[in-house]
C-alpha cells in the first residue's frame, strides 16, 4: 500500500507492505539509517522514534499505523546555522559534552527518548531512570547519560 508520512518535517510517500516494520521503511525506503536495529522485538530501544508526539519502538510499528503520521528521527534534531555550522539539539550537545555516547549504536534511540522526556516529563514521574528504561545501553552504565540529560534539562530548551 501507499504510505504517506511526514518525516522530520518533510512529506514522504512510499510503497510498502502494510505489515512492514516502520524501522525497515525508515532505513531501507527512506535511507534514514540513523535509527538502528537492535533486537527487533521492542526490548532494546535502538529503533526508538517519535511518532505523533509519542515515543515508539519503530521495529514494532507496522508501517500502516504510520499512515499520515508525523515522525521524528535522530536525523531531524540538529539545525543549521546561517554560516552553515551544525547546531546540535541541546540533548545531543549535552550527550557530546558529558560522554553520553560511546559506541553510538543505542545513541539515536536514547537521544529520541531523552528529547521526548524533556517535552513530557510528566510521563515519567520517577524521573530519568524511568524515562530511559526502554533503551538499553551496554557502554556507559547510564551514568554519563543521566549527567547529559541533567545538563540538557538545565539548558532548558525542549524543542
Amino acid at each position: 500500500m501507499t504510505i504517506r508520512m511526514t518525516i522530520n518535517g518533510r512529506d514522504c510517500t512510499t510503497d510498502a507492505n502494510p505489515m512492514t516494520p516502520l524501522l525497515d521503511v525508515l532505513r531501507e525506503s527512506c535511507r534514514l539509517t540513523g535509527t538502528k536495529y537492535g533486537c527487533g522485538e521492542g526490548e532494546c530501544g535502538a529503533c526508538t522514534v517519535i511518532m505523533n508526539d509519542e515515543l515508539v519502538m519503530s521495529c514494532l510499528v507496522p508501517v500502516m499505523q504510520a499512515e499520515v503520521a508525523t515522525i521524528e528521527t535522530v536525523e531531524g534534531l540538529a539545525r543549521m546555522a546561517d554560516d552553515g555550522a551544525e547546531i546540535l539539539h541541546p540533548v545531543q550537545q549535552a550527550f557530546l559534552e558529558c560522554g553520553g555516547a560511546q559506541c553510538g549504536i543505542c545513541t539515536p534511540g536514547m537521544v529520541m527518548a531523552g528529547v521526548h522526556h524533556l517535552r513530557h516529563p510528566e510521563l515519567a514521574p520517577d524521573g530519568l531512570a524511568e524515562a530511559l528504561e526502554g533503551n538499553l545501553c551496554r557502554c556507559t552504565g547510564y551514568s554519563a547519560i543521566f549527567r547529559a540529560m541533567e545538563r540538557a534539562a538545565e539548558a532548558g530548551r525542549p524543542a
Binding site: 534514514l32 539509517t33 540513523g34 528521527t73 551544525e86 546540535l88 557530546l96 555516547a101 553510538g104 545513541t107
Partner: peptide, 17 residues
C-alpha cells in the same frame, strides 16, 4: 570532546548495516 561524537549523535555514522 569525542571526535566522532557528533556523527554518532546525529545518525550520520555509518555502521555496516
Amino acid at each position: 570532546t569525542r571526535r566522532e561524537g557528533a556523527d554518532k549523535l546525529t545518525g550520520r555514522s555509518r555502521y555496516v548495516d
